[in-house]
Structures are given as structure tokens and as C-alpha cells.
Write a protein that binds this DNA or RNA. Sequence first.
DNA 1: GTTTAGCAATCAAACTAAAAGAGTGCTAAA
DNA 2: TTTAGCACTCTTTTAGTTTGATTGCTAAAC
Lengths: 332, 332
Amino acid sequence: MEERKKKILQAIIDEYINTAEPVSSGALVHKYGLDFSSATIRNEMAELEKTGYLDKPHTSSGRIPSAQGYRFYVDELIKEDDLSLEEIKYIQSKLETRVNAIEDLTKIATNTLSEITHYTTVAIGPKTGYQNIEEVKFVLLGTRMLMAVILTDTGIVKETIIKFDDDITEEQVNTLNFIFSNKLKGKPLEEIDKPLEEYIFSEMNYSLSVIKPVMEQLNKVVNEESQIYLEGANKAFELPEFKSLEVAKNFINLLDTKEIVLDLLNTGFANDINVYIGDEQQNEQLKDFSIITFKHRYQDKDLGTIGIIGPKRMDYSKVISVMKYISKKLNE
Amino acid sequence: MEERKKKILQAIIDEYINTAEPVSSGALVHKYGLDFSSATIRNEMAELEKTGYLDKPHTSSGRIPSAQGYRFYVDELIKEDDLSLEEIKYIQSKLETRVNAIEDLTKIATNTLSEITHYTTVAIGPKTGYQNIEEVKFVLLGTRMLMAVILTDTGIVKETIIKFDDDITEEQVNTLNFIFSNKLKGKPLEEIDKPLEEYIFSEMNYSLSVIKPVMEQLNKVVNEESQIYLEGANKAFELPEFKSLEVAKNFINLLDTKEIVLDLLNTGFANDINVYIGDEQQNEQLKDFSIITFKHRYQDKDLGTIGIIGPKRMDYSKVISVMKYISKKLNE
DNA sequence: GTTTAGCAATCAAACTAAAAGAGTGCTAAA
DNA sequence: TTTAGCACTCTTTTAGTTTGATTGCTAAAC
């Protein structure tokens, strides 16, 4: 694309992100000091529309970016936004909070991101199955209840309660601790499965009435979908696009249908910031929204994904800058 | 109030709950087979308005119930709604799911209530501090991390992670288990406080560098606000009152501002179903909504509160009937 | 004394028409 | 290749009208 077209496209998208109104050729001349007449810009705009980067709500209106336009903008035109001193200070103070559980850090990061960007933020923890087991412990609670505690190499602690029909002895708890420690230390969580159950039963010759409920419950933990953190759902309602009842409804439905959100957060590559633009997605429910996600990592270990959901007319450069900064800080 | 006025008031509220449209004198004659002319009903309506039970959006429109009208309806006029066989079967099948943790049951009940009534449902667990401690156990995870597990008499398990700057020995863990078991078994959780810390330190002469982080973390658990369960936020958007952007925004804000919801769920008497009608509440944010709550109990022990948030024009009799049924089933 | 038929008055909602205004596309000149 | 100029398009705004539902009141009927 010629330099001039790029300039015009960028100006249009910047302006549209700011005002939420279709952008006219005249406005570009006034506000962006482009050194061509509005007629020239009009010609370029017509071409940008023909090649798919712009749309027109109706014949005699200004232009708005198409999904393809946003994509080009995000991939090629965007310039980093410098965070203000206040923003940096705010983020630092929030992230410095001492936490004992990783999950609390995710929560804080999610909240901070929402506060700074004024968009709705969602997050999930790391995939359970891929984490490695550092330690497994069984604790007797009362006489017929066992708590299993699993510590993973990412520092996440999973626990679950197991109930039995008969009393459990200290003896049995010790055996369980012994078996599982030996068998599982260092292995990924997903290895807690059927074969393991059979192995334990055949090799160890250990009572099925004890091992069965244990395996059942542990399996549940391994396969359970991660908790979703949601922050600032109300923030979206300040945006002009949410004046449309249709859009507002779709948004709430989206947040309520956890599968879609989960799916999106689970996609995406490791270290990068991923931008999903509405119509690009196959999913009809996403067509009005854009989603930007990043993986929250520490020492190369996946600690979950944090994302922002907003209108396609999102302040991409601001959001991406803030995400980069938070991501960097989290890694430290 | 005279019998005839009651009949008319009830018919108006029933009709308004059904249609969401102001109710005219004529409609009452047609649909409710009242044996008076529309003129007579008009006279009665005028009086009901003067005494505060009805409102009029504008001079030449039909009537809508006022908060006072709804209150009278709920307290005096409402008739129980029989659940359909399908509904009963659905509720039973949902509540029969085997769960290991009480929290899961609350979750299921919340979901069921929302599915059956088509309203948005919220719930919280029981107040932590009032529960009695049945058992406290400390488990060593790695070398500098301890997990504290507290089992309460309501069957709820609280756990927290405690990190230390130095290594912890098995020896120390045993001492902790001994001290806390002896000191706390049978006591309410809120007794984990400053005096206890001092007692342990002075009497037991136990290292402060160990006891301090433990107490700090346990304290956090005792005082942490209960998790909020939310189901069917999107359901509200199907209702005609949510055509108004203002109302929709207030609703989302309400759900996002957890304090208000928490406050409401925490009020209310033990065994009963509590109905809060919009304007009756001091809180400006609640003026468009009604909230119906009940305490979820098992063998006289408080297991949390479940509530429904919807428009003032809620199907009170349906909601109350379903709640009564679910409440009864939960208690079993 | 209570009820009701009848009717003028009220007001939102729907419809119509006209005008204003913003912006484009195209043509022809620079 | 750029741009001034202008006709054309289409939304938005405004005003005015009509329609229709519903009430409140009066006076007659029960």
C-alpha cells in the first residue's frame, strides 16, 4: 500500500476510535493536517473502500474501518502508546501487593487492566492437565472425608474433597500418600487417568473401595474447566456502541456463555499479544467485538491468559501498550 | 380494604406482571370477568391511586402498581403457584446430583432457580466467622509453604496457603497441628484473632516468625467476603423493562458493585423468604428492581443465601413458590 | 346511595411532510 | 495528478397532524 493511503487509513481509524462517528474527508483535512484537498482524500477513500479496508454506513456518509482495515491497522500501522507516569505508578502499586496464591495475582492483574483501560477484562488460570505435579498429599478430615492437595510446578494448589462410605484409617491415608507421591511426582497432572487407576489396583493390590472415589475426584480436578475472572462488565455500558440494545444484549450473552470466552482465551500463541477482530472470527456472537489477549507467564511457565473484550472500535494501541507493560511486570 | 378493591388491585397487578403494559379499566372487565362496568372500576382505581396503591404514567393512561401496591400484593393477595410436574422433575433431578462440597450444591441450586424462573440469580456462602471449627490441619507443601485446612461444622472446607521466609520442619508442623487442634476445635472461626495469637505466643512460647504468618493468613480466611455466585445475567435482557438503556445499565452496575448485592443477601431473617421491593430500599441503585431471597439451610445450619434480582414487575408468586420448593428440597 | 352510560378532554404514539445539513462522486479545469 | 465546484443522496431534525386508547366527570338509571 502506498504511503499516502496508509496515512489516510491510519488517520481515519484513529479518528473513528476517538469519536465513534463515520469520518469524512473534510474532517481529515481539518484535524490531521494532511496536505491534500478533501477531493484527493475522497478519491483515496473510494479506493480504500474498493480494496476492502473501509466501509460506508450509507452512500452519503463518511467512512468507518472494516475488519480488514482494523487488521491492517493493528498489524502495520499501530504505534506504541507511552503510559503516563500516573498509570505506571498505579500499575506498580497494584502489582506489588503480596499474594500467597497465584490466582490472587491473576485477579489483581485482571482488575488493574480493567481499571486502566476502562474495558471489560476476563481471565482464566492455566490449563490444569499440562502442569506438573510437585507434590500430592492426602489429609484426613473427620473420619470419612479426605482432602487431596496437589501442588504443581507453577505454584498452583488444587484441592478437592473425597467422601467415603466407610471410615478411613490413618494407615490408609499414609499408604495413599506413599503411592501417589511415588507414582506422580514430576508427572503432568493429566496422567491421573484410567491406566494409573488400573496400575495402582493391580500392582499395589490396594482396596478398590478406597482407590475408586479417590481417582474419581482427582480426575474431576484435572478435567475441571478453569475459573473465569471477570472485571468491569459495567464499563462497556459507557461506550456509545452499547446504546444499541442488540449489541448490549449480545455482549451480556457472550460473557454469560462461558464456553466462547474460554475458547478464545485458550487459543493464541505463547508470548505474544493476540488480537481477534470481530468479523474475522467464525462465531456470529463475536461479530461486534474485538478481543485482545496475552498469556500470563512466569519463568516460562504458563500461568493463565488475560484478555480484554470491547467493541471493534477499541483503543488498540493503548490496550496493547498497557498489556505489554503489565505482562512484563508480571514476569518479574 | 374492601373486598372489591382488593379484587381489582390484584387483577391489575396480575395483568401488569403479565403484559408489562399499563392496565385500563376496560381490560379488567374483558379479561377478568369482574361484574361491574368499566366506569365503576374507574372510580375504584381513582381511589386506589389516591391511597397510594397505584400509579399512572400520564393522565390518560392505564394504571401500574406502585411499590406500596406490590407490597400489599405480596403480603396479602398473593396465591401460591403450583409447580408443574416438569418443573418438579427438573428441580429434583438437578438437586439429586452427588456433590462433595457444599459450595457445589449452592451453585447447582442457584443455577436451577435461574433456569426455572428465567430471572437472574445470585448467591453467597455462609458467614465465615460464625461457623464452628471442627478440625484444623496444617500440611507441608515443599519446604517453605504450608497449607492450612479448616473444616467447619457446616461441612465447609476453607483452605489457605502460608509462605515462610525460612524452611519449616515436620516437627514444627506437628506442633502447629497440636496447638491449633487443642485450642480451636469446637470454637467459632472468628475466635482466630489477636488475643489468640498473643496467647499462643506467650503460653506456648512458640516462635513468632512461624506463628505470625500463620495467624495473618488464617485471619484473612476468616474475614474474607464470601464468593458470589451469579447465574443468568443475560436472562434479564429478555424482559421489556430492559429495553430502556438506563435500566439495563443500572442492572449491570448493580451486579458489578458486589457490596450492594452482598448487603442485601446478608439482611433478612432466618427461615423466611424475604421480598425487597425497589423503591422501599434506601438505595437509589435498587429503585427499579425487586429482590427475593431465602436462606439456604440444612439441619438448622446456615449454608448461605440465594436470591433473585429482577424488575419490580416480577412474577412474585411463581418465584416464591419455586423458592419454597427448592428450599424444602435443599433441607432434606 | 350506588352504578353506569355517555362524552369531552388528554396525551402518547404513529405518521407525514418539509427542511436542513453533512458528505459523497463526478466532471472539468488547473 | 490534483482540486474546485456542484449536483445528488441520504440521515437527522423539526413541526404538524392524525389516531386511538383511556380517563374523569356528569347526569341519568337502578
